[in-house]
Amino acid sequence: MTALHDEPVGTTATHDAPADPTAHLSAADIDNLGAELNAIRDEVIASRGEADAAYIRSVIDAQRKLELASRAILLCSLFPPAWVAGTIGLSISKIIENMEIGHNVMHGQWDWMRDPAIHSTTWEWDNVSPADMWKHSHNELHHTYTNVRGKDNDLGYGIMRVDEQQPWKPLYLVQPLSNTLDACFFQYGIAFYDLEIGKYLKGRVDRKDFLRRSKKVLGKIFRHATRDYVLHPMLSGPSAPTTFTANLTANLVRNLWTHSVIMCGHFPEGVQTFATDSIDGETRGQWYLRQMLGSANISGSPFMHFMTGNLSHQIEHHLFPDLPSNRYHEIAPKVQDVFERYGLTYTTGPLPKQVASAWIKIIRLSLPNQFLKAPVNPASPGPTTAASRGARRI
């Protein structure tokens, strides 16, 4: 496998490129690693069945009932207890719909059920980013080119510097502020990110296609805003103002939560980025290795995993994006065992530590490299990593 980092370009930094944490692996090691991960995937594929189907159907049913009940309570949101209960319920409902249902259904995790109502080709989620555009930017691009600089547009969402190897620009000085705003308006940021505005401004996107997609995004934003900020408040009669603020709060909570979970998946210390030429001629084993090193997990309770859409198992999700999300907890110990036996670091930690690690990196990398301390060696345990034990050549 080629080096994980290339030399910095367009910066006066004197930092040496970090050590390659895969240098101890031979081509045969990587092929064997790929075969072991293929076996884990095949085992889950062969065991999918009615229990999995019942799981997703029960989640969808519970989410819809929770949303309906919460909106019914908000009809009386003029009374503070109703506002609090309705807002909490609606916030949780929106998080579940986006993360455990929408994100995972659109990944094709449940396509094997052959249920047209729960299928990646038919699902449209409660988010202002149209499903087809999101699937292109997320499923096709991000999951194919995970953390490859210049290929993966998710790397810093295109507006942040998240690696020393990215050339520094004065604009990055404000990235702590811009990331805060992005967290508050995350669903809108994702929608405009999916539009690929930067590529359009550089003349790399057809104008007619861009206008067509812009119309689709604006149409969905209008429908979403009309439902949450006009229709439901009007139905509340005297409680219209408080129902409006409840919907606004629920969307804010969903945005902040989703943003934090996504940040924890790819930005904490210890997560790798990759040079563009490092994927030339990439084998399946090398692709697996890139997903392993380019992702990070969040440790916690079953409820926390559920509320993240099981993206707390980000490593397992990136290895097997089309496996049912409810099976990630089952295969996580097997995947961690592969990390340990091949001398790799399985980056994980509690949510507060992972969020703090990601934010510290964003603040730190807003400055030019010459103002930074030496970068953390990604081969060593970061602040929230489970160190590889008994590392050896397989």
Rank of each mutant, 00 (worst) to 15 (best):
L78C: 10
R204Y: 04
L248I: 02
G237L: 09
T180N: 07
R392D: 11
G281C: 02
Q166L: 12
G102D: 01
M99T: 15
R213N: 14
D52Q: 03
Q314Y: 00
A183D: 10
K353P: 08
I360G: 07
P130F: 01
M133R: 10
L173A: 11
A85T: 09
H143T: 08
R204I: 03
E50N: 11
G189A: 09
P333Q: 00
N153P: 11
S388I: 08
P324C: 03
I95H: 04
I30N: 08
L252P: 05
N104P: 06
H136K: 15
F186I: 12
I60P: 02
R227M: 13
I262P: 13
K373Y: 08
G270H: 00
K202A: 09
I190D: 12
A250Q: 05
H142R: 08
P233V: 05
I262H: 12
C76S: 13
M234S: 11
D115W: 00
L367F: 07
Q109E: 15
V230C: 09
W257N: 06
L173C: 03
Q286T: 06
P324Y: 01
V174A: 12
G382Y: 00
V355N: 03
A240S: 11
L90H: 02
M263G: 03
N153F: 13
G108R: 06
A85E: 03
A28N: 10
I56N: 04
S325N: 14
T87W: 00
V271C: 01
R290P: 10
V253L: 06
F222G: 14
L181C: 10
A240Y: 02
E330F: 01
A54Q: 08
D228W: 06
P81N: 04
D20Q: 02
S301G: 11
G89E: 03
V253N: 03
Y229C: 12
E340A: 11
I96F: 04
G309T: 09
F320H: 12
E330T: 13
L171F: 13
T243F: 01
F339E: 09
R64C: 10
I331Y: 02
H329V: 11
L367M: 11
I362L: 14
A3D: 11
M99H: 08
I262V: 14
T144R: 15
V230I: 14
V230W: 08
L68A: 13
K220C: 07
V44L: 03
A39S: 13
